[in-house]
Design a binder for these strands. Structure first.
Lengths: 149, 149
DNA sequence: GCCTTATTATGAATTATTCATAATAAGTGG
DNA sequence: CCACTTATTATGAATAATTCATAATAAGGC
């Protein structure tokens, strides 16, 4: 996974977002945001590889620190599928879901199936106040289905 | 978490299930099945603690081996919530979902919200053939909500 | 009761991630 | 533009859950 220098426009947009959230604008944050935007659902390792196009000496741990901070800030969304390291994306405002291929592990975005907030009204919640519903679809992607036959 | 000696009836039922799946009946498997049935959503550590009421010297690794085998066999269902070790339950035949309390981590069963197979028909699957939908609700349980106020 | 093969035991290894602490740099006020 | 405060980043070590390889054991068929 190679890097792509962020366009001035992209940089400006992310800088604005960072400031809007009261965060300092650093080259590490800009590089991470750009990388995740370019490669949605990338894992920390991939992000680090991409970021190293701009910042060759950044360590994986530093990338983890930045990813965690940006996730907490709300600029990134963290996805944690079983049997996969955590993945990150910049699409944070809609509550879309994900489909993971059981063959190759690739992840695709999936919009809500039923209106805007699907599955948010389970029948019996045992007194729990439900805040969000994480939906993870599992299946076979077209490529893996073709290979299987 | 203490053990409860399995009733003869329970043991007989699980023995039958094991044989029906072409598996040998061992005291380790019976103890694990009984423990998980008694404590739904227990983590491996809890299962080991419970099993040790019958088999004081069983190691955690052995419990892991048995849990993995029973899960593969289909006698147990494994739940893998983020930030929690895997949990196990004996309720395997319905596709029910789970609600996890963000306060205390407790897990409750939640029946399907919309008919029998909710959320199984997303709008755009990018060519993926969806097989199952894992739904994980997050919220606050009654106890934690009370404490928060 | 033997014998074959499934099952279990166990110590070591793995992987993703966080933590504590030290070093650095962003933005602010003079 | 410089200095300074405090956020941010760097880094090595630690952690936690789980799996793996291999050796020991025991179920169930004959």
């Amino acid at each position: 996974m190679t890097s792509t220098a962020a366009s001035a426009e992209t940089t400006a947009r992310w800088s604005e977002e960072l400031r809007a959230h009261g965060r300092r604008v650093t080259k590490q944050r800009l590089a991470v945001l750009t990388a995740v935007e370019q490669f949605p659902h990338a894992v920390a390792d991939d992000v680090a590889a991409s970021v190293r196009g701009d910042l060759p000496d950044i360590s994986l741990q530093s990338v983890y620190v930045v990813l965690a901070d940006l996730t907490e800030t709300g600029l990134l969304r963290k996805i944690e599928p079983p049997h996969s390291p955590a993945r990150y994306e910049t699409r944070v405002d809609d509550n879309h879901h994900h489909a993971i291929c059981t063959g190759c592990g690739r992840i695709e975005d999936v919009d809500c199936a039923v209106g805007h907030a699907p599955c948010l009204t389970p029948e019996n919640t045992h007194g729990m106040t439900i805040q969000i519903a994480d939906v993870l679809y599992r299946g076979l992607c077209a490529d893996c289905a073709a290979q299987a036959s």
